[in-house]
Write a protein that binds this DNA or RNA. Structure first.
Length: 314
DNA sequence: AAGATTCTCAACCGCACCAAG
DNA sequence: TCTTGGTGCGGTTGAGAATCT
């Protein structure tokens, strides 16, 4: 009798995947068996579709730690990293984009454009971005992830999940609240100064900002989907804003601790490597990836000044 | 009804880490 | 110290399903 992989795993455990296909009589590599087991055969899997609460939690976790699907999946009982990854890529990314939020940075696109021009400090964004192609601007937006792809060391930290606080979905769910579903953030007048976010609770300090909350339909705050400001220079402006409940300082600091442990190890290694690489990899660097891009662009414009010229109008 | 397009998701791929020899 | 095998991870692909025109 040929054993099924499921029987083999239940009998021998899932610690030796190379043995599983042999014992089960399968013409598969252990790696494929492990994947099959992890994504489909595990008894604790929940094949139900994502609930709004789970989606909400997924968005929040992604905002906090980026695309570390295995960690996120462990916060969602019964969901696999593949489930989470697929659901994010096929649904939630589009959902956020439709709402005018960059699914990578969790910031409004308009905010990103404003910051893009602001950080360089050379020209107004309308001038700078106006000289760039649409594709290039899109590339900038998509690559400005403030949470770099974790090193293998980070990925292999078996204990990091246990360090994450358990997060419960709240009634103030992002996708739950139907008021949020029809938001067109493009209509918001985001100030060039980079303040961007509408405080959840209007504060005296916000009264001098360039927008008015009076005409805005909703108390929306994109910071609810952001762990940490990607642009340290602008972070001071937001210090007085209320920290969203799900991104409590405890939660933020715990995640930062997890990441910092591996960052420390990584920095020792990278100190012997190309500093330009460090610039992009180190989340604790005072430069963001966006700034690095802008610096490179400035260099390019210095070398090729004709690129600064507006295309001829027709 | 049929072809085109979009969506979904299982599986594959390559990379990196770890442990053992 | 180097090599090798096992493992885990995130990114990507492609087939089938669903939807649109």
């Amino acid at each position: 009798m040929v054993w099924t992989a499921e029987e083999v795993v239940s009998k021998h455990g899932s610690s030796n995947w190379t043995a599983v296909p042999k014992k089960a009589g399968l013409k598969r590599f252990g790696k494929s068996c492990r994947l099959r087991w992890a994504n489909h055969l595990r008894p604790d899997l929940n094949n139900d579709s994502f609930t709004p609460q789970e989606e909400d939690l997924l968005v929040k976790l992604h905002a906090a730690i980026g695309s570390r699907w295995s960690i996120i999946a462990q916060q969602l009982p019964g969901k696999t990293d593949n489930d989470v990854k697929n659901h994010w890529n096929t649904k939630l990314k589009k959902k956020l984009s439709d709402m005018g939020i960059d699914p990578v940075t969790h910031k409004p696109f308009s905010k990103l454009l404003a910051d893009y021009g602001n950080i360089g400090g050379v020209q107004k964004p309308s001038t700078r971005t106006g000289s760039l192609s649409k594709d290039f601007k899109n590339a900038i937006l998509l690559k400005s992830n403030p949470y770099p792809i974790p090193s293998q060391g980070q990925r292999n930290m078996k204990s990091q999940t246990s360090l994450l606080p358990k997060m419960e979905p709240t009634e103030n769910s992002f996708f739950h609240n139907k008021n949020y579903t029809d938001i067109d953030l493009a209509q918001f007048q985001v100030p060039i100064s980079g303040e961007g976010c509408l405080p959840s609770t209007p504060s005296p300090s916000s009264s001098s900002s360039t927008y008015s909350t009076e005409n805005l339909p909703l108390p929306f705050c994109w910071n609810d989907f952001l762990l940490e400001d990607a642009f340290p220079a602008a972070a001071d402006n937001q210090e007085q804003e209320t920290m969203p409940a799900f991104l409590s300082k405890d939660f933020v600091s715990q995640i930062e601790n997890v990441i910092q442990q591996s960052e420390n190890k990584k920095e020792v290694i990278s100190s012997h490597q190309n500093p330009a690489t460090d610039l992009q990899l180190s989340s604790s660097s005072e430069f963001s990836f966006l700034e690095a891009m802008l610096n490179q662009e400035n260099d390019m414009f210095l070398n090729f000044p004709h690129l600064m010229e507006e295309p001829p109008s027709h």
